[in-house]
Amino acid sequence: MKEEIVIAGFGGQGVLSMGKILAYAGLMNDLEVTWMPSYGPEQRGGTANVTVILSDKPISSPVLDAYDTAVVLNQQSLDKFESKVKPGGTLLYDPSGIHRLPERTDITVVPVDAVAATVELKNAKTYNMVLLGALLKHRPVVPIDAVLRGLKKTLPERHHHLIPLNEEAINKGMSIA
């Protein structure tokens, strides 16, 4: 098993932390993982992307030119990564972030209206967890249980009360995708 994922959007959308949660979930599931960010000024609101690889074998390159799955949250990211999804792969996008729809027909294209979902959840910070739920529905690379264990491991104790809300957001993402 090997899943090569890119998540791309604006800084502040939780792109890097979504990748981090996915990577920790992989760790919890005894997989090899790499998490490779585009770092720097992106942290202040520019475009940000992160490559996450989950594999049951040692991973060579943390840098890729083709992905099994892309999660794109704005137009620049869609333009950059649509062509880099492997044939048969999956592209998830947030329709509120783009003005041109994906055009590929040889991949599974999934719109995820995560903004609307966060409004229903009454918490904008659940945005990336909704997307993670949608991702895991189409690419069940790790069980939700592993995600929650990963969250528990990485979140400071004082934030542990937020884990049920995150679980709710993941389920929401699964239901809308």
Binding site: A23, E32, V33, T34, W35, M36, P37, I59, P62
Partner: peptide
Amino acid sequence: DGIVGQMMEK
């Protein structure tokens, strides 16, 4: 280099 400095692995 920045890749191995910034990337996360187990």
